[in-house]
Simulated scan of single mutants.
Amino acid sequence: MPKIGNIILPDYPLLLAPMEDVSDPPFRRLCKMHGADLMYSEFISSEGLIRDAMKSRMKLDIFDYERPVGIQIFGGDEEAMEMSAKIVDTVQPDLVDINFGCPVKKVVCKGAGAGVLKDVDLMVRLTKAVIKGTSLPVTVKTRLGWDEASINIDEVAERLQDIGVQALTVHARTRAQMYKGHSDWTHIERIKNNPRITMPIFGNGDIDSPEKALEYKNKFGLDGMMIGRAAIGYPWIFNEIKHYFKTGEKLAPPTVADRVEAAQNHLIWSMEWKGERVGIVEMRRHYTNYFKGIQDFKQYKQRLVTSDGHNELFDIFNQIKEVYANYDNALTGQ
């Protein structure tokens, strides 16, 4: 069983990836309900935390039912990273994670996220600053390297472990790939097989089905895997994978009623956490994913993304359940 500091994770844990504008407390709560073993906040700017930026501060919200949960920070300045680690320490998550993997230009331009892959010495200094600023275990999420010609994850893994990093998650793409092309887990497998490496190594990238999860689990021999985009609008993926690991059989897919319940819970929790107006508006981006692949759904989606009141939205949800009750029976074979 992998251990991060005092956190004992189950055998081959499934981690929920930190995703900007997605991995907030309402979404994490759903993923936890459906089997995620370890989750992270959206990534938080170290400079934003120090400036006391409202959005950054709000991302520090964690709840006991989520545990174990980590808070992820990013930045390119040592002093800011140390100070933000001290701020994170005060809300007592279970660990602090550093983002050295975000490929987005506005982050990379500040010498943060995947931008640090070009300068491993800086990566080490930034990590040391975070370790100095917190009493919690420190973990890192990164990528294989800047581009195909500069894959440096072997050096990165050894040097980070040497200064006290307690687990490493690797997105098996380079920064140049962004989210395109295939991920290549053979590089992560090589780190795991390095006799010097004793910290848990988790893989990330392209896990979108129970079959692929089992194939990668058996093929690469890592300590666990992180799931990101496949969980958006589909939190069931965690339990589906666990069931498949145990039995070799696939769980029945969620019915339309299951999807409505998840979307409705997500909306309720979003309104509770963000306030009604913001909760309703920010939920709109999720409906396409919750109801993907359902026939003739366009008119309902249009109403979901234009309705402004929660009562109206709940009425639409009820109509969807009624209209698609027979569709559910077809889905579940009843």
Rank of each mutant, 00 (worst) to 15 (best):
Pro2Met: 06
Gly5His: 10
Ile7Val: 05
Ile8Asn: 04
Leu9Asn: 02
Pro13Cys: 03
Leu16Val: 04
Met19Asn: 07
Val22Asn: 08
Pro25Asp: 02
Arg29Pro: 00
Arg29Ile: 00
Met33His: 07
His34Pro: 04
Ala36Met: 00
Glu42Ile: 12
Ser46Arg: 14
Ser46Leu: 07
Glu47Gly: 06
Leu49Phe: 03
Leu49Gln: 04
Arg57His: 06
Lys59Cys: 08
Leu60Phe: 08
Ile62Met: 08
Tyr65Ala: 02
Pro68Cys: 11
Ile71Thr: 13
Gln72Leu: 11
Asp77Gly: 08
Ala85Ser: 11
Ile87Gln: 12
Leu95Asp: 07
Asp97Leu: 08
Asp97Thr: 06
Ile98Gly: 09
Pro103His: 05
Val104Gly: 12
Val108Pro: 14
Lys110Met: 05
Lys110Ile: 00
Gly115Glu: 11
Arg125Glu: 01
Thr127Arg: 05
Ile131Trp: 07
Lys132Phe: 00
Thr134Asp: 04
Ser135Glu: 09
Leu144Cys: 10
Val156Gln: 15
Val156Trp: 14
Ala157Tyr: 13
Gln161Cys: 14
Gln161Leu: 13
Val165Gly: 13
His171Thr: 09
Gln177Ala: 01
Lys180Ile: 01
His182Thr: 05
Asp184Asn: 15
Trp185Ala: 08
Trp185Asp: 00
Thr186Asn: 11
Pro195Lys: 14
Gly203Val: 14
Gly203Arg: 15
Asp208Cys: 07
Asp208Leu: 03
Asp208Ile: 07
Glu215Tyr: 02
Tyr216Gly: 00
Tyr216Lys: 15
Tyr216Asp: 11
Asn218Leu: 13
Phe220Ala: 08
Phe220Thr: 07
Asp223Tyr: 06
Gly228Phe: 02
Arg229His: 02
Arg229Gly: 09
Gly233Trp: 07
His243Gly: 08
Gly248Cys: 10
Leu251Pro: 13
Leu251Met: 15
Pro253Cys: 01
Pro253Leu: 12
Thr255Asp: 05
Ala257Lys: 15
Arg259Phe: 12
Ala262Cys: 12
Gln264Met: 13
His266Trp: 03
Ile268Cys: 02
Ile268Glu: 13
Glu272His: 12
Gly275Pro: 10
Glu276His: 03
Asn289Cys: 11
Phe297Pro: 12
Gln299Thr: 10
Tyr300Trp: 15
Leu304Met: 15
Leu304Val: 14
Ser307Thr: 07
His310Arg: 10
Asn311His: 15
Leu313Gly: 01
Leu313Cys: 01
Asn318Val: 03
Ile320Arg: 05
Tyr324Val: 03
Tyr327Val: 06
Asn329Thr: 04
Gly333Trp: 09
Gly333Cys: 09
